[in-house]
Nucleic acid binder design. Sequence first.
RNA 1: CGGGGCUUAGCGCAGCCAGGUAGCGCAUCUGCUUUGGGAGCAGAGGGUCGUAAGUUCGAAUCUUACAGCCCCGACCA
Length: 440
Amino acid sequence: MRLSRYFLPILRETPKEAEIVSHRLMLRAGLIRQESAGIYAWLPLGLKVLNKINAIIREEQNRSGAVELLMPVIQSADLWRESGRYDAYGKEMLRIKDRHEREMLFGPTNEEMITEIFRGSVRSYKDLPLNLYHIQWKFRDEVRPRFGVMRSREFLMKDAYSFDLDQEGARHSYNRMFVAYLRTFARLGLTAIPMRADTGPIGGDLSHEFIILASTGESEVFADKAVLDQPIPAVDTDFDSREALDAIFQAWTKPYAATSEMHDEAAYNAVPADRQISARGIEVGHIFYFGTKYSEPMKATVTGPDGRETPVHMGSYGIGPSRLVAALIEASHDEAGIIWPDAVAPFDVSLLNLKVGDAGTDEACATLYKALSARGKDVLYDDRDERTGAKFATADLIGSPWQVLVGPKGLAEGKVELKRRKTGERVLLTIEETLARLLA
RNA sequence: CGGGGCUUAGCGCAGCCAGGUAGCGCAUCUGCUUUGGGAGCAGAGGGUCGUAAGUUCGAAUCUUACAGCCCCGACCA
């Protein structure tokens, strides 16, 4: 993509409302634009990151056996009356009426709807286990939205829902998501710690939050450092093996780790002092097992092997991709801007033509741009007629993992400069060497 | 939902107290000079001063109402 033809509205100054670094950088780097309190438009650069995160989430959900579908954002109030949550959910639910005065709502979550879909089509235990997920916009009318997309009213959520014949099966489904989440966050370049968590209005008795440690986090958390030493489950993990998944779950949940709601002072004090973590964290995922809380009132049953109808055991599993964008920035940035992990960077390479109009730099850039693009690299080519300083500042701000600096000075020796955003390290290389390095 | 604050050009702000018809920096556009870390000079464009009503000869400025937004707290898959 040529920057001169892209839409990248960068701000030199920080809008005053942005308090935390991720919010500031998302506004400055042109990822988002606020349209209302807690409601944001995703600009091209932000959307690219969001899509990359979604792609990784999808891969890991699919790998674990979950199946993607897509449910609507608008739901019927009647559905929520069945579960009893229409009145219970309170003012956080945005209620609306259509032209026929029918009561509708903008979905804050989808347990009711997925249960309705399930009961309409599944009759037999032979169709279980089943895990259905979607990535869809949610709306929760927060009293006080803040911190940009970290705590917004409209936000994107991957929510998965599992259905099993019994509690044992449901535990296995829970573990599948547990492992899939560990892999997902690791692939995003994040260190997420699963912590025992409160179940809140979802209900149920087993729940873990996946927390990223960050001083700007809204949750107070306590953990044993030992949890950080656990290996990330391998790509070839057998998701059908109850034993294998349970072993991973046991290993990860053995060290103490809990949010403040579930904090056990005595257990925490038993952790050696040099291994105690008392910090703040950002919740990027939350998984629940809640048994028959919805299947019973909503009559989502299957016929079991014994011929009797039983309500299915369910769990729900959420990840917030839009919040993850902010969390990634909180975890990886410096004075100059964002430092994207390779896996989610909106562009793999920023190519800077330091003297647009110079035959040599123009040609070298064209060669690099063509060769990198042909090999599937997403390149943002800064072909603007700008001063070098502005180009450097832009490239650092938007945080592409690699920068290729092409100027007359280097070209005089037949070299261009390759810069690693994360370390600031630069090396002078020929064009061929640069290509070899980036395409390796 | 309690408390506090803000709203003037795309962004950041001044002007308001002591009413006289709007200004600064950045950004944008034009020209010249510059060109390896957000250039310099000269010029230009852009604002019904959040909305509505009131007071006044005259309102960005004073009064009232409303709206939007932000911060602290409480709340929060």
